[in-house]
Amino acid sequence: INCNIVVSKPELTDEDKAELKEQAMEQYKDEQLRELRRQSQPKAQPKPTPTSHKAGAEIDSIPNLFDEL
């Protein structure tokens, strides 16, 4: 059996190449802007926990066997 398979790639015109290049540049700019905005956003700081007041109250309420001697 004689068989020939031909696969051809469509060639892009200069206009198509320019359009694709511009789209790629826009996409790259958008990604860079998103990254800069993400880096410049202030990081969320955890809320301070009031441990000194509550911790002291908990320590005072713990029963101690040696106080009654």
Rank of each mutant, 00 (worst) to 15 (best):
N2S: 09
N2P: 15
C3R: 13
N4M: 09
N4P: 04
I5G: 01
I5H: 09
V6R: 09
V7T: 10
S8L: 14
S8E: 13
S8V: 13
K9L: 14
K9D: 12
K9R: 14
K9A: 12
K9H: 12
P10R: 14
P10H: 10
E11M: 08
E11I: 09
L12Y: 10
D14M: 03
E15G: 05
E15K: 10
E15H: 05
D16H: 04
D16G: 07
K17W: 02
K17G: 02
A18D: 11
A18E: 14
L20W: 08
K21G: 04
K21A: 15
E22G: 03
E22N: 11
Q23S: 00
A24W: 05
A24P: 00
M25F: 05
E26C: 00
Y28M: 10
Y28W: 10
Y28S: 13
Y28I: 07
K29Y: 15
K29C: 09
K29E: 15
K29D: 15
D30P: 00
D30F: 15
Q32S: 11
R34W: 12
R34I: 05
E35L: 07
L36P: 00
R38N: 05
R38S: 11
Q39R: 13
S40Y: 02
S40R: 12
S40G: 03
S40N: 11
Q41Y: 04
P42N: 02
K43H: 04
K43W: 05
A44V: 08
A44Y: 01
A44S: 04
A44L: 09
Q45L: 11
Q45T: 10
Q45F: 03
P46N: 06
K47V: 05
K47S: 01
P48E: 11
T49M: 09
T51V: 08
H53E: 09
H53F: 09
H53S: 04
H53M: 02
K54W: 09
K54V: 06
K54N: 10
A55D: 07
A55P: 00
A55E: 09
